[in-house]
Design a protein around this nucleic acid. Sequence first.
DNA 1: TTGATAATCAATGATTTCGTTGAATGATTG
DNA 2: CAATCATTCAACGAAATCATTGATTATCAA
Lengths: 224, 224
Amino acid sequence: MSTPSPKHALFEQFALVAKTLGHPQRLELIEQLGQGPRSVDLLAEKLRLPIANVSQHLQVMRRAGLVVAERRGKFVVYALSGGSVLEAVASLQRIAKANLAEVDKIVRGYFDQRDALEPISREELAARVKDGLVTVLDVRPEDEYALGHIPGAINVPLTELERRVQSLPQGQEVVAYCRGAYCVLSFEAVDILRNRGLAARRLADGMPEWIAHGLPVDRSISLP
Amino acid sequence: MSTPSPKHALFEQFALVAKTLGHPQRLELIEQLGQGPRSVDLLAEKLRLPIANVSQHLQVMRRAGLVVAERRGKFVVYALSGGSVLEAVASLQRIAKANLAEVDKIVRGYFDQRDALEPISREELAARVKDGLVTVLDVRPEDEYALGHIPGAINVPLTELERRVQSLPQGQEVVAYCRGAYCVLSFEAVDILRNRGLAARRLADGMPEWIAHGLPVDRSISLP
DNA sequence: TTGATAATCAATGATTTCGTTGAATGATTG
DNA sequence: CAATCATTCAACGAAATCATTGATTATCAA
């Protein structure tokens, strides 16, 4: 048919959004943007991809309404177009986790036993932070920490954790978090900490979800 | 790299789910399955697509964890794998509506043209019925119709509408109603009728409200 | 057993998407 | 203005996806 029915035209648009989400590196870009607006430059460096490639991906995502771009001087800063994007990704993860044996296999094969204990929920952590009962550990790289973190969180990037583990408060439970529910950094951090005998747990999700639920964010830099 | 990092392997899985959602006809299949489990046969008929094609799509969706299949006698019945699937689709729609100008254009062009965006009110309908200006269409299942309907309304359950659409009075505007303001049947009925070129509108609410406001109810059975 | 119906499989060519390359644009700095 | 940096554009071949076709398997009924 030359003129598709409006209904199909709409489905076409919805499919465009989904199709655009259907690429691992674009999902990784979204994970990064979930923590805040970023330049093409920085994203390319984070993902270790050619700048041109990242630029292409971002433009595809812009055309699909997933991100918005704003020129700021020399840079073009991209940001998520809205909260629905992270919601969509969260749904994808839920579907995959619940129905794809492969996901279980990956998670179990690589992270199992590192996560023997239940992860701690946002609400629980927020409450304990108020009571000063836990040490909150942000294991993302320094620059991501600087752009916003959970108040009171200590930043020890995963790469330095082993070296600096003894500088952490000893008697307390440690809760590690990073970029999101499937960010591997916090898994690895908990593993390291447990091996050193600390009571360590993992936040069930990460920074973007913390922000999305309106919990307080500290944008100042506090050196550990 | 020979062995992709577990992180990348996970993103690969999430992307698979999204990629699978990224096809208009698969989204339409999900819309159908959102109403309940269906056989390949029936889905193919609904979408007016070759059975082999629908079967392929369903299998792709099964591999991506979106649907599950169960053989029931001669038939294979597919169903959504869980609620997250509809959540994901809802997010897609929200993203598209909020950020894609194209969607606005389609919706506007679609509804404006026929002055049908506005549902018709109870009072207006009651007046027009008296003048015999409209065909009133009850798209609920037969048993619900039998228990009470708007006088003069013709019962054509949504499931049969497509088949019986040509038996409706042709020159007149059609007003469809069903169970209530948010009952989807009347939306779909209007959609079907418009695709067939009829001037169709939707009653703002449904039968319960009609009764509640003391308007006349016909409890006899009139075969169309 | 045979025939009919429902669904899947296998294979093909057409179309789309992807990553890379190198050149072009836009904006700031010297 | 020239030099530089950040980003985008254009174009290419490689790879993946799609719809279609015809053959094949599974189940039921006669």
